[in-house]
Amino acid sequence: MRDALPPLSCLRAFEVAARYCSFTQAGNELNLSQSAISRQIKRLEHDLGRLLFERHHEGLRLTPTGEHYFRVVQRLLRDLGDETARLRRRGDDRQLILASSPTIASIWLARQLPDFQRAYPNIEIRILTVEDPHRLDLAEFDLGIYYHVPNEVDPPGLVADAIFEHERVAAVCSPIYLERHGNGIEPAHLLVNHTLMVVEDHYHDWLSWEIWFRELGLKWQPPLHTLRANSFQLLMNATLAGQGVTLGWMRLLDAELRQGNLVQALPLTIPSRGKLSLFTPQHRHLTEPMRAFRHWVLDTN
Rank of each mutant, 00 (worst) to 15 (best):
Leu196Cys: 00
Leu196Trp: 01
Leu196Ser: 02
Leu196Glu: 00
Leu196Gly: 00
Met197Asp: 00
Met197Glu: 00
Met197Gln: 01
Met197Cys: 02
Val198Ala: 07
Val198Arg: 03
Val198His: 04
Val199Asp: 00
Val199Ile: 12
Glu200Asn: 14
Asp201Thr: 05
Asp201Tyr: 01
Asp201Ala: 06
His202Gly: 05
Tyr203Gly: 03
Tyr203Arg: 06
Tyr203Leu: 07
Tyr203Pro: 03
His204Asp: 01
Asp205Glu: 15
Asp205Lys: 14
Asp205Asn: 13
Trp206Glu: 13
Trp206Pro: 08
Trp206Gly: 12
Leu207His: 08
Leu207Trp: 07
Leu207Asp: 06
Ser208Cys: 10
Ser208Val: 07
Ser208Asn: 10
Trp209Glu: 00
Trp209Asp: 01
Glu210Met: 06
Glu210Trp: 02
Ile211Lys: 08
Ile211Asp: 06
Trp212Gly: 01
Trp212His: 02
Phe213Tyr: 05
Arg214Lys: 15
Glu215Asn: 15
Glu215Val: 11
Glu215Asp: 15
Glu215Met: 13
Leu216Trp: 05
Leu216Arg: 06
Leu216Met: 09
Gly217Trp: 04
Gly217Ser: 08
Gly217Lys: 07
Leu218Met: 09
Leu218Trp: 15
Lys219Leu: 14
Lys219Cys: 11
Lys219Gly: 13
Lys219Tyr: 14
Trp220Arg: 10
Trp220Val: 09
Gln221Phe: 03
Gln221Arg: 06
Pro222Asp: 04
Pro222Val: 04
Pro223Ala: 08
Pro223Arg: 06
Pro223Glu: 10
Leu224Gly: 08
His225Thr: 10
Thr226His: 02
Thr226Gly: 03
Thr226Asn: 04
Leu227Trp: 09
Leu227His: 07
Leu227Thr: 04
Arg228His: 04
Arg228Thr: 09
Arg228Trp: 03
Ala229Asn: 14
Ala229Tyr: 03
Ala229His: 09
Asn230Gly: 15
Asn230Phe: 11
Asn230Tyr: 10
Ser231Phe: 04
Ser231Cys: 10
Phe232Trp: 13
Phe232Ile: 14
Phe232Pro: 11
Gln233His: 15
